[in-house]
Simulated assay, not measured.
Amino acid sequence: MREKEIKKEWMDAQKAGFTGWDFSRIAASVSEDPLPWDYKEIVLAHIKPEDHLLDMGTGGGEFLLELGHPYDNTTVTEAWEPNVKLCKEKLAPLGIRVEQVFEDAVLPFEDHAFDLVINRHEAYDISEVRRILKPGGCFITQQVGGRNNEWLSGFLIEDFQPEYPGLFLQKEKEKFLAHGFNIEANQEAFPFMRFYDVPAIVYYAKILEWEFPGFSVETHVERLKNLQEMISERGYIETLEHRFFLVARNNK
């Protein structure tokens, strides 16, 4: 009976809804080593009230609203339909421009439209970023690197191959320099993340489907049982995260 109850907990976690970029549902079951930088502080150090700001891949606008930037100088993009709907309901009435995007290399903006473009964990096309930035404008991004969740993905998914194996800070810096940017700040880190129960892992894996392709409780139940045994023995499962940030100035 206990095994059935456990599997039901896993299935409930798999079915749980997700909007914006809000992991509060599993906050009590997860801990992360802090990054050696503060993305919000970096952004605030570069933004002025008069700046035309673009937040790429805003999710539900949770982080954006923390910045307190004038709404009429703020634009967001988002690709995922549920988040687009959320942004139109939550951000558009404030006066924030909301645009759905379908291709990184085709953004619906005029040349030199923005003083500052920010991007946290969203894909981008460097040429297109440069096109929409004003001369001297700034691009700030924090990215999930190619080694993120390397161990956990490999444990759950047989023959796992990372989607972005070459995504490292040094390579990105080289690309920005080749496109005429100056790099003003950058750093890379590999903090640990710990899961204290299996339902949190299930919830996380279903959301980050590009890191756990084909994952489901039904097809990976034996691997989940193995993880449950590990948690019972030592209290948590530990995986390595991979993050980097860079601040690039359009030297056009």
Rank of each mutant, 00 (worst) to 15 (best):
V144T: 14
F181L: 06
N73L: 13
F244E: 01
P191D: 11
I140R: 08
R223S: 13
D12M: 15
A92I: 06
C138I: 15
R131Q: 10
G57W: 04
M11A: 10
N186Y: 04
E81W: 09
F215T: 00
W21A: 12
A200V: 09
M11F: 14
G95A: 06
L53H: 04
P213A: 10
V221Y: 14
A45G: 11
P165F: 00
D22I: 07
E172Q: 15
D33M: 07
S24T: 11
I237E: 09
G60E: 06
Q228P: 02
I26S: 13
I207T: 13
T19G: 05
P36G: 01
E99V: 08
G214D: 00
P135L: 12
I6V: 15
E163T: 14
R2M: 14
R147G: 06
H179W: 10
T75W: 12
F212Q: 01
A200L: 00
K252A: 10
A123R: 12
N148P: 05
V217G: 09
K8P: 05
F195T: 03
E50I: 05
N73H: 15
F212M: 01
P82Q: 04
L44I: 08
I231S: 03
L94D: 03
H46E: 10
G136L: 09
E233S: 09
V221T: 12
E174W: 01
P199L: 07
T74Y: 00
A92C: 03
C138W: 03
A189C: 14
E128W: 03
H220R: 02
F109M: 00
E158N: 11
N83C: 07
K85Q: 10
D125V: 10
H112P: 01
W21P: 01
T75G: 08
S127C: 08
K4R: 10
Y236G: 04
N148E: 09
N251T: 07
E50M: 03
E238I: 07
S232D: 14
F215W: 05
A16S: 14
K7N: 09
V198C: 03
G60R: 13
L246Q: 04
E89I: 01
K4T: 08
F181C: 07
G61D: 02
H121T: 00
R25P: 02
A79P: 00
